[in-house]
Write a protein that binds this DNA or RNA. Structure first.
Lengths: 116, 116
DNA sequence: GAAAGTGTGTACTATGTAGTACACATGACA
DNA sequence: TGTCATGTGTACTACATAGTACACACTTTC
């Protein structure tokens, strides 16, 4: 599914419970023109900026990382983390590329409870 | 150190051994105008594209990930890896943000020799 | 049946990205 | 001493990004 159609779905589901989730009102709340949000939801324009996606995520109670991924973007804070130690994280990510989810989850937990 | 001054240093070190590492010849080999490479090395222009940085890295025998990081860019292939499983890798990276190098290296090795 | 609210089409804009093209002054070298 | 190569200044360009502004037709709602 594309970012646009996903956003439209999520917004319309919200709207069933809450009348303030019209395209215009959401646009007003996140600070863009209604016409622009309309185009975003129909994938008529390329995905908006990271900031706009984050404000959308907040308003629609969605995971920003997921929406950003649908937009083909990697969160700026993750990029910053990688840029601190580019070679280290490059190795790690390439190593984990084909690892199954549960293996990565294990690593995440290991590090969280880590005693390094 | 900036990308530009770093590149100039590396190129000039190459040049001591190999006369073909003039700005003009490197520019010719990597396929950009000499004037442009000159500006890159003096940080007069913003960092070039990922492709151009990679060609520079190849010509100067430098680590592309390092040069890209100096340019404030994250390698496209790493972004692609993250975009496959954005939430999983987002958690992992934020978890590892402040971990010491050796802890991350341990993880890298663990995964490499991993028996998952 | 008028007012208010809804989504959308068209036109336009400002800024950033990623360079090219050419002229010029200087230095090496044969 | 003329040629050739070197680095650089100036001007320009094409395309992408991230939107705004306004008019319009349709639908509720009162």
């Amino acid at each position: 599914m594309t970012l646009g159609s996903y956003l439209r779905n999520v917004r319309e589901r919200h709207r069933e419970r809450d009348r303030t989730y019209s395209l215009r009102q959401v646009a007003l709340r996140i600070g863009v023109e209604p016409a622009y949000l309309s185009k975003i939801e129909r994938d008529v324009v390329p995905p908006p900026s990271e900031g706009t996606i984050r404000r959308l995520a907040r308003d629609l109670e969605e995971d920003p990382d997921l929406l950003l991924a649908m937009a083909g973007k990697v969160s700026g804070d993750l990029q910053a983390i990688i840029l601190q130690r580019p070679q280290l994280f490059a190795d790690l990510l390439r190593q984990l590329k084909d690892a199954p989810d549960h293996a990565i989850l294990t690593v995440v937990r290991e590090v969280r409870d880590g005693d390094w």
